[in-house]
Simulated assay, not measured.
Amino acid sequence: MKRIYLAVFAAMTALSGAASAQDFVQSGSDAKLPGTEGKAIYNAICSGCHMAAGEGATGAGHYPALAGNANLEVPDYPIYLIINGQKAMPPVGDVMDDAQIAAVVNYIRHDLGNNFEGETTAEDVAAAR
């Protein structure tokens, strides 16, 4: 299972362009990403499918836009999808700790053309696991 996550991570990093592979080098037995900034994590993992500005993409599959996405108003929705995945989106919660997931959720809810209220915390993510 770890190989799948690392393969997805490597592919997403290669496609994102905004963050280099050096930003999130995996070493030793640590299976978690070392970065903590929501935008950097988004660029390394999410932007390969959802695009850098969150506009989404269609091609080998349909990757919904995150920019202007009303489904992100409630943070429980993206928390669930990041942890568990759905359809073409793999579950990536195992490669991020609770604080990293909260940072990504805050980034997609407050940036990318979104301006939803409230901050997601690591405790919110822990409660959803």
Rank of each mutant, 00 (worst) to 15 (best):
M1T: 14
M1K: 13
K2W: 14
I4P: 00
I4D: 08
I4C: 01
A7E: 15
V8G: 13
F9H: 06
F9I: 06
A11D: 10
M12T: 12
M12L: 13
A14D: 12
A14L: 14
L15G: 15
S16T: 09
S16A: 11
G17N: 01
A18N: 08
A18E: 10
S20T: 13
S20R: 05
Q22M: 09
F24P: 03
V25P: 00
V25Q: 00
Q26K: 07
S27G: 03
G28D: 06
S29R: 07
S29D: 09
A31K: 08
A31V: 12
K32Q: 12
K32R: 13
K32V: 11
L33G: 04
L33R: 03
P34E: 03
G35K: 01
G35Y: 01
T36W: 00
E37Y: 00
E37Q: 02
K39A: 15
Y42V: 03
N43C: 07
N43Q: 11
I45F: 11
S47N: 00
H50V: 05
H50T: 05
M51N: 12
A52M: 15
G54H: 02
E55N: 10
E55L: 12
G56S: 09
T58F: 07
T58P: 00
G61A: 14
H62N: 09
Y63T: 15
Y63P: 14
P64T: 14
P64L: 13
A65F: 08
L66C: 06
A67G: 08
A70I: 04
L72S: 08
L72C: 08
E73D: 07
E73P: 02
P75C: 10
D76E: 10
D76G: 14
I79C: 09
N84H: 11
G85A: 14
K87N: 06
K87P: 00
P90S: 13
P91A: 10
V92S: 04
G93K: 07
D94Y: 06
D94L: 08
D98L: 04
Q100V: 11
I101F: 13
A103M: 06
V104L: 11
V105I: 05
V105H: 02
V105C: 03
V105L: 03
N106P: 03
N106G: 04
Y107F: 15
Y107E: 10
I108V: 15
H110N: 08
D111N: 13
D111G: 04
D111P: 06
F116V: 04
G118Y: 09
E119P: 02
E119V: 11
T121F: 11
A122S: 01
A122V: 01
E123M: 04
E123K: 07
A128P: 04
